[in-house]
């Protein structure tokens, strides 16, 4: 009886050690992958040949071009998506124009609301080059809201607009 219980304890120990071991061994690689993945998205966003990124914190990078500040890349969240939170990266330049927007995480309905995802459609590209001077209201908007995905597209547009307003001020 006690011997058989002992097997269970040993087994649990072995399992624990092997997971911890592999994780410790590979955690650097995983962290590197995670950073690399985030950076690749950001570099696409900046939309410029030569620049350097200065990390301010986990959610914000400053773009430097020829040693001068030229905008920022930052993460924003909006809770008003159709199925919950949408997380976006936004890149701006120093004049207050948008360099690009990218959806990092979303839970929108696949086939309908997921058009905000770059891998599904180009919808998100229409933010490029916009600024506060554009028309962001629902009527006559410069953004093409999509019927069927009204809530999703409005949530993204409003989030980008709010972030841009805060950023410009």
């Amino acid at each position: 009886m006690s011997l058989k219980l002992f097997t269970f304890v040993v087994l649990t120990l072995i399992c624990g050690i092997s997971i911890t071991g592999l994780h410790t061994f590979k955690s650097e690689q995983i962290e590197y992958n995670r950073k690399e993945f985030a950076l690749r998205t950001i570099k696409q966003l900046v939309n410029q040949k030569q620049f350097s990124l200065v990390q301010i914190n986990d959610e914000r990078y400053a773009i430097k071009y020829q040693n001068a500040y030229d905008g920022a890349v930052f993460k924003i969240r909006t809770p008003s998506g159709y199925n919950g939170e949408i997380i976006l990266w936004i890149a701006t330049n120093s004049a207050g124009y948008i360099r690009g927007v990218r959806v990092l995480e979303h839970k929108e309905t696949s086939g309908i609301g997921d058009l905000i995802d770059i891998e599904v459609s180009d919808w998100i590209h229409q933010f490029i080059g916009m600024s506060l001077k554009n028309n962001w209201t629902y009527d006559n908007s410069d953004i093409d809201h999509v019927s069927g995905a009204t809530i999703t597209t409005r949530a993204v547009t409003k989030a980008v607009f709010d972030a841009l307003k805060v950023e410009t001020e």
Binding site: L22, K26, Q29, I30
Partner: peptide, 10 residues
Amino acid sequence: DIVLQAWYFE
């Protein structure tokens, strides 16, 4: 899961 994160992150 760990292996996938280390080698096939995407």
